[in-house]
C-alpha cells in the first residue's frame, strides 16, 4: 500500500546537469544496477573469476618478460619493467571489462532477450537504462581495479602516494569505454559485427604503450598512438602509480571524460530511437 512513485525531482543530478539526457533520473537508473545485482547474486563466481586473468598476465610478465627486459627508462626515470607494465594492465583490464559489459551483454539484452522493451513500458526512460547499465559496468570494473591494485601493492609495484587516485581514474576509464561501447552496440546488426570490436580493442591493447614506452616508436607512429583512448588511460594510471605526475594528467582526464559524455549522449539517443519507434 505504501508504494509511491517519486517524481523526477532527483533528475537534476550532477550528471544530468552536464549531459542534458531527457527524463533521466539517478534513482531510476540505480534500478538497473539493482537488477544486475539480482542477476549476479547467483553468478558471483563469474565476477570473482574475472579477476584472475589480469593477475595471470601480471605474474607472467613479472616472472617471464620482466626478467628478460630488466628495466625501462621513461622520461629519464629508470623503472623496473613489471612496475612499468602493471599500471598499463590495470588500465587495459578496465577497458576490456567495460567494453565486454557494454557490448556483448547489452547486445544480447537489446536484440534477443528484449529486456529493455519490457523495462521501457514502465516509467523508466532510455536514458535511465543507458545510465544504469553503464553504472553497473563501472561498479563491476571498480571491483576488479581494487583487487588489482591490492596485488600491485603486495608485489611492491606501487611507487607513489598518488596511487590513491588510481581507483577513481579506473572508473573514469571504464566510463569512457562503456559509454562508447553502448553507443556502438546500438549500431550493431548481428554477432558478426563484434569482430570489429575485437579489431579495435586488440591493436589498442598491443600498441598503446602497454608493453613499451612511446619513445620506442618512430615519431609518425607516436602521433597515431597518442590519439588512441587507451594511450591516455594507460598513461593516466601509470603516472599515478609511478608518481611521474605532470600537467599531461589533465589532458588524459579530459580526453576520457569527453569521450564518455559523448558516448552517453549518443547511446541514450540511439536507444530511444531503437526502442521507442
Amino acid at each position: 500500500m505504501s508504494a509511491t512513485l517519486h517524481p523526477d525531482r532527483e533528475s537534476a543530478t550532477l550528471l544530468a546537469r552536464i549531459v542534458p539526457l531527457r527524463g533521466t533520473s539517478a534513482r531510476r537508473a540505480s534500478l538497473m544496477v539493482e537488477r544486475s545485482l539480482m542477476v549476479y547474486r547467483r553468478g558471483w563466481v563469474i565476477i570473482v573469476s574475472g579477476f584472475f586473468e589480469p593477475l595471470f598476465y601480471l605474474l607472467s610478465i613479472g616472472v617471464g618478460i620482466g626478467a628478460l627486459v630488466g628495466s625501462v627508462t621513461v622520461d629519464g626515470t629508470v623503472l623496473e619493467y613489471t612496475a612499468f607494465v602493471a599500471p598499463a594492465l590495470l588500465a587495459s583490464s578496465a577497458m576490456n571489462g567495460a567494453v565486454y559489459d557494454s557490448t556483448f551483454n547489452i547486445f544480447f539484452k537489446l536484440k534477443y532477450a528484449k529486456t529493455y522493451d519490457a523495462i521501457l513500458s514502465t516509467p523508466m526512460s532510455p536514458g535511465d537504462v543507458a545510465a544504469g547499465e553503464i553504472c553497473w559496468a563501472l561498479l563491476r570494473g571498480l571491483i576488479y581495479s581494487t583487487a588489482f591494485l591490492v596485488v600491485m601493492l603486495a608485489l611492491g609495484l606501487v611507487g607513489s602516494p598518488w596511487a590513491v587516485l588510481v581507483l577513481p581514474a579506473a572508473v573514469l576509464i571504464g566510463f569512457g569505454f562503456a559509454a562508447v561501447g553502448v553507443a556502438a552496440t546500438t549500431y550493431m546488426r548481428g554477432w558478426q559485427d563484434f569482430e570489429f570490436v575485437q579489431l579495435i580493442v586488440l591493436p589498442m591493447f598491443l600498441f598503446a604503450t602497454t608493453f613499451y614506452p612511446l619513445s620506442t616508436y618512430p615519431s609518425a607512429l607516436q602521433a597515431v598512438v597518442v590519439c588512441t583512448p587507451l594511450y591516455h588511460a594507460v598513461e593516466l594510471i601509470r603516472d599515478l602509480t609511478t608518481g611521474l605526475v605532470d600537467g599531461t594528467l589533465t589532458i588524459h582526464v579530459a580526453y576520457l571524460a569527453v569521450m564518455g559524455l559523448i558516448g552517453l549522449r549518443v547511446a541514450a539517443g540511439r536507444l530511444e530511437k531503437l526502442l521507442l519507434t
Binding site: A3, T4, L5, H6, R27, R28, L31, E34, R35, M38, V39, A113, K114, T115, D117, A118, I119, T122, P123, M124
Partner: peptide
C-alpha cells in the same frame, strides 16, 4: 519479454521496483 536472467519471482520484484514501489 520476461527477464530470462531472473527467476519467476524476481521478474515481478524488479518490475515493481521500476515503478518506484
Amino acid at each position: 519479454t520476461l527477464d530470462t536472467e531472473l527467476s519467476v519471482r524476481e521478474n515481478l520484484l524488479i518490475y515493481g521496483r521500476y515503478f518506484g514501489m
